[in-house]
Computed example of a mutant assay.
Amino acid sequence: MDEIRIKQLEVFAHHGVFPEENRLGQKFVISAALRTHLRTAGLTDDLTQSMDYGAVCAEIQTFLTQHTFQLLETAAEKLCEHLLQTLPLLDSIQLEIEKPWAPIGLPLKTAAVCIERGWHMAYIALGSNIGDSKGYLDGAVQALEQDETMRVERVSDYIVTKPYGGVEQDDFLNAVLCVKTLRTPHELLDRLHEIEQTAHRTREIHWGPRTLDLDILFYDEELFSDDVLTIPHPEIPKRDFVLRPMAQIAPYFVHPVYHKTIMQLWEQLQA
């Protein structure tokens, strides 16, 4: 990944825990590494294929002067989120905010916070077999599209499938979508649960009927497991209703555990 770097941009703003800092203001120094693909810009000499670092500096200054935060951590977090949402070509950012006039009563050159944030690719399974199943799936897609921390990239066709898990119930309507997200896996899971709740999802029977079921299948190529969440979803190789729609939108995505493409896993399940 290529980078555009901004080093030690000085901004006078009003962030800090103490009321005097919010009232009087002080100097902040911002450095950033903006990660994007610069190949096309380099070959074409076309600014629209890159990011105007002058405009980015102005955006940073405007944001930090129009908002007031107590913590540098919050200022950095919100600024990263703002830049990622407003700069279409920005993939990720490493940001440092220095506070050289920090009122700590001891001699120091500067205090600083440095964070790294970026877009992550996730695949999400959708399912419903109660009520207006198409309406529930449409509503979930729309909720993700309207979330500023999400960019829905692709949505598979909706397919009708037989129930999984041995519970006698109606057929399901299933789909898989690909989304870019600024959320961590647990934050993404929380958001999916919120969307499920708007569809009055209940969890009374394991693998039972539900108005809306949203599962994280993959998150980048991460391998992760705790008491709440396992990534990749452990049931993927067994589920036609996941592999079939995902093969439509990402047939050559490689499962990071089995090292096989989605198409290969689907063909293996059908054999």
Rank of each mutant, 00 (worst) to 15 (best):
D46A: 06
G16C: 03
E168S: 14
P19E: 15
G16V: 01
T74F: 00
L89I: 01
I249C: 04
D226R: 07
E187V: 02
K99S: 07
R151G: 09
Q169Y: 12
R35L: 05
Q270G: 15
L106W: 09
V141D: 06
Y53L: 06
F18A: 14
T86C: 02
D240E: 13
M121T: 14
L72R: 00
V11W: 02
D52P: 05
I231F: 01
P232A: 04
N174L: 15
Y219W: 04
E21H: 05
D215M: 04
T86D: 03
E116S: 14
T149L: 08
K260C: 12
T184G: 07
I262K: 10
I231H: 00
G166L: 06
Y219S: 09
I115S: 10
I93S: 03
K134G: 15
P237H: 02
I249E: 05
F18L: 15
E98A: 13
P19L: 12
E145N: 15
T68H: 09
I6D: 06
H37T: 11
G16W: 01
A76C: 13
C114T: 15
L24S: 14
K99E: 04
Q248T: 10
K99A: 08
T68I: 04
H233L: 07
Y123I: 02
L265K: 06
P256D: 03
D170H: 10
L223E: 14
L34R: 00
Y164H: 14
P232G: 06
I60V: 12
D91K: 08
I104F: 15
Q66M: 00
T202A: 06
D170P: 00
I195K: 11
L192A: 02
V254K: 11
F218C: 03
A41I: 06
Y258A: 08
S128P: 03
H37M: 01
T40I: 09
E204M: 03
G166S: 08
T161H: 13
L90Q: 03
Q49S: 08
V179T: 12
A250N: 07
A271E: 15
E73T: 02
Q268E: 15
V254F: 10
L87S: 10
L79Q: 03
P163F: 11
R201Q: 09
L144K: 06
I159F: 10
Q26A: 07
W207C: 04
I124N: 02
L71E: 04
R239P: 07
L189Q: 14
L229V: 11
T202K: 10
I97S: 08
N129H: 13
E235N: 14
H259N: 11
F12C: 11
I205V: 15
H186Y: 04
G54M: 01
I205P: 13
A122Q: 05
W266H: 15
T230I: 12
I4R: 01
L144G: 08
R117F: 01
H233V: 09
R23T: 08
A102I: 05
P88C: 04
I124D: 04
T202W: 00
I97P: 08
R239N: 09
I249M: 03
V167S: 09
P234G: 05
F12L: 08
V160H: 10
E235L: 14
F18E: 12
M51T: 05
R154F: 14
Q8R: 12
